[in-house]
Each structure stands twice: as structure tokens, then as C-alpha cells.
Design a protein around this nucleic acid. Structure first.
Lengths: 245, 245
DNA sequence: AAAAGATTGTGCGATATCGCACATACTAAG
DNA sequence: CTTAGTATGTGCGATATCGCACAATCTTTT
């Protein structure tokens, strides 16, 4: 018999930490620790999902891949959420790819064990649905932002969303990777990143972006970020938004 | 005591018609027929939702309104779905406006009565979650399409999505209104509409667009349409996509 | 230390969309 | 029939982004 996952690590995931003791204890034996490496793919578009994932320190990006290979991100999931929504929503698959955007740790649970607890209809059921509602807002706002805002604004939004889910001010991430997330050219990201750097909001170095002035970024970003952030707080009753560490 | 809603009309909404007899009969006394007029607003952004709506012949657009007044559509709901997802997902409000895009009929149900049936956890619970999953795909694809595709392609997609939820080939809709949905200029819609008209796919007349060649439109549209359409069919086990009437 | 590879910076013409101004055409009301 | 109002068509300069080519710089490997 495998030993239990470390409850302290498990609680780094907000969805799990918000559970009442009884449900938490029931889930604990089914949580399997996993190390998630940069670029690792959790789900491929259309894959049957055998596990759901609860990131603790990793960040995962939900991507859509076009037929011509172009990609665009529709949402980000970190220690605020869960990957594998389609399992309890009833789909078993989604037409998206889930890829690790920032390496770290997390836990996985088999779809069967997830569903067992979900169908009990307790706080877990309630929390997963509320989280899904918050994610819907994030996706919606991505749609709007893609339509109406500049690359620079979107980069701001993306940096803040990532920073919210990270315990560091350093984002290990090339412009090229970011461009795949935002669905724009790599040069566009380079340009936008330099503009932000010129304003002393971030520092660019090879393969890393360091946030220097979180409040400044929050002033430079479009309203989309705040809308999403507020909705997470409202629905999940906690602050995802971090102050500058 | 108000008399029961007409079961035949009620069944025009697929979510309701797919219910087993027992659940259907339980819901019927709580369904209140409503006439939905063009431009009518069902929910304003942030409103508490007192009712959920099941359109039968009306089409409803989910819009986001920016601070500067610019708008963009994130999804469309017709007789395939329900408005008021946030009620059972646990939010009570959403940061969107729901506005009638095509006049018609539908039914409403109080949030209390909706939740009573939802919490019984039967097919209704299951169907609403599956529908929400399908809607998430629609919103996601809107995000991707906004980023990567031309106005002409998006207009195609929008026309097909609307046509799927309509029993007519005539869309009563000005270019100006469509431009608000797509989040582009009115002139951009006029231009795109004429291109489609030049290809004999649609006919433009004042305030109305008539679909002439549905198959042609399906060939001109980006892959986004098919992805969403397939996902609705897969999740809800039915054809939303219509052939040309 | 040199070479190879990855990352970022820069330039430039092409294209799509925007914002605005205004002309034209259709529709409904008096 | 006329008029007012609404919808659509057209032109044009401004802007953002694209696609591509290639230079410069940093990192890792040999």
C-alpha cells in the first residue's frame, strides 16, 4: 500500500485546502504526487482523461492547436484549480491540450476516484463547479481581450495571471513560448516585453522575465485582468491576486 | 393556479426534451412561457439572476461590455441550451450581458425551482453540466477565432451558429448589430458580408441576411465552427448542425 | 577557446483592421 | 409624396500586426 500524500503539500492547492476535514481525509488516500516538467503534456486534444490534476507549484496552460499548427491559450490553471474539468462535467475529453507552462509539483487522482467523491454532492462537488464557473470567466475574458486589446496589454495580463499562480517573481519563459500562448508572433512579444522593460515594470533576460513592479503592471494592464481576478475571489472566496513579494 | 406550459412547445428546447418523463413532469409546472423581443436584456452584467431561461425559438447572445462601451460576444444560446448557468454552477451572477439576438419564445423558471431539480442529481443535473461543457468549448473557440481568423471567417462562423439555432434561413439582423457581436467595425461586417454575397453564399438586404448556400458557408468557414458543432453533438448526443432547409 | 545552438533584436514591405467622413439607398411616418 | 430616420456603401489615411530575413548576443557543449 502506498503511503499517504503529504497533507501539507496537498493543501497548497486551494481547491483541496478549502475542503472540510471529512472530505479532505476521504480524498487524501487517492492523491498521487507528481512532478510536472516544463513542456510536459498532460492531455492531448481529444485524449481520454484517465487522471485529473491538482497543481500545487506548477502552472498549466490550456492551449488550442489549429490545423495549421498555430496555437492560442484559452486559460491558465495553477494551485487555484484543477485540470480535467471535462471528467466531472461529463465529457471525458476536451478539444484542448494541457501543457506545463511552469515546472513544479502537483497531485493526480484517477477519474474514477474523482467521480466517486464528486457524486457525493458535498463541498467538493460545489467547489469544483464554482471553480469551473471562474474558469469560464477567464476563458470569456481571453476571448474579449483577444478581440479588443493590444499585444502589450495582453502580455501584461498574461504575466499577472502567471504571477498570481507562482511563488516567485521570476518567470522562466522564452518570448517564443509566450508568443505561442498569446497566439502572436515572437517578435511581437519581444517588442511588448521591451516596452514594459522601458517602463521598469519587468526585467528581460535570456529565458527569464522578472517582475519588478507588480502595481505598475496592474495599472498598465487592461480591465480584463481585474474582472477575472475579482471573479475568482468572489466565487472561491479567496485572493488569487498577490501583492508584490 | 396558472395552467401548465404546453409540453409540445417546451420540448422545442433540447435540454428539456431530452429529460426522462419523470423529471420532465416534475419541471413542467415550474416553466413559465415568455416572449423574448429583439434587443431585450435578460441579464445585465453582475445582476442577480432570479430566473433561468430555456429558449425555444429565440436566440440569445452572451456579450461582454468593456468600460469604454465596446462589446464582444462570447457565446450564443438557442433552443440547444439554457441561460443562467451561473445559478447551478454556484455564482448567482456573471460579468456578462445576455441579450436577445433573434426574437422568439422560451420558458423561464425561478432559480429556486431550478436548483431544487438540479440538486436531485438526476439526468437534469447531468444534462446541464454537459451543456455547460459544450458552452465552454464554444467560448474557447471564440477566443481562438478572435485571435487567429479574419472577420470574413468569423462572420461565416457566426452566421452558421445562428442558423443552427433558427428554423429559418433569414436572419433579421443589421450589420451594425453583428459588428457589436463580433467586436469589429460596422464597415468590416458590410465588407465581409459583401464578399460572401459575391460568392452567392448569402443575400444581403436591408436589415436581413438570407443564407443561400449553407454547404458553401461550411466550406468557407474556419475550422472553429466544426469543432464546436462536433462537441455539441458528442456531448449532447444530437445534431445541432442543420442541413440547408 | 572554439563551435554550435538557442534566444533576442532589428528592419522592411505586406496586409488587415481601424476611425472617421460622407454619399447613397431603403423604409416608415406624417 | 415628402421627409426624417435608419441602413448600407465607399474612400482614405493611420495603426497594429504579420511574415520573413538576418544580425547580434548569450549559453552550452566539445
Amino acid at each position: 500500500m502506498a503511503k499517504l500524500a503529504d497533507p501539507i503539500s496537498v493543501r497548497k492547492n486551494y481547491l483541496l485546502s478549502d475542503l472540510p476535514a471529512k472530505e479532505f481525509d476521504r480524498l487524501l488516500p487517492h492523491l498521487i504526487p507528481v512532478t510536472l516538467k516544463l513542456g510536459q503534456v498532460l492531455y492531448e486534444s481529444g485524449d481520454r482523461m484517465d487522471y485529473a490534476y491538482f497543481p500545487t507549484t506548477a502552472i498549466v496552460s490550456l492551449l488550442y492547436i489549429m490545423e495549421n499548427g498555430a496555437t492560442a491559450e484559452i486559460g491558465v490553471v495553477g494551485n487555484d484549480g484543477i485540470l480535467g474539468i471535462a471528467l466531472f462535467m461529463g465529457g471525458d475529453t476536451t478539444p484542448n491540450r494541457a501543457v506545463i507552462q511552469s515546472a513544479g509539483e502537483g497531485f493526480k487522482i484517477s477519474s474514477k476516484d474523482l467521480m466517486t467523491e464528486f457524486s457525493l454532492g458535498g463541498k467538493f462537488h460545489d467547489l469544483l463547479l464554482r471553480y469551473t464557473q471562474a474558469l469560464i470567466t477567464q476563458i470569456s475574458q481571453t476571448a474579449v481581450c483577444n478581440r479588443l486589446h493590444s499585444v502589450e496589454q495582453q502580455l501584461c495580463r498574461w504575466l499577472l495571471l502567471s504571477h498570481d499562480r507562482l511563488s516567485s517573481d521570476k518567470l522562466v519563459m522564452t518570448h517564443d513560448l509566450i508568443s505561442n500562448m498569446l497566439g502572436v508572433r515572437r517578435e511581437g512579444v519581444t517588442l511588448a516585453a521591451r516596452k514594459l522593460s522601458d517602463k521598469n515594470l519587468i526585467k528581460n533576460s535570456r529565458g527569464t522575465i522578472t517582475l519588478l513592479d507588480r502595481l505598475g503592471l496592474e495599472q498598465a494592464v487592461c480591465e480584463c485582468y481585474q474582472v477575472v481576478s475579482d471573479e475568482y475571489n468572489r466565487l472561491l472566496d479567496r485572493g488569487v491576486a498577490r501583492t508584490f513579494a
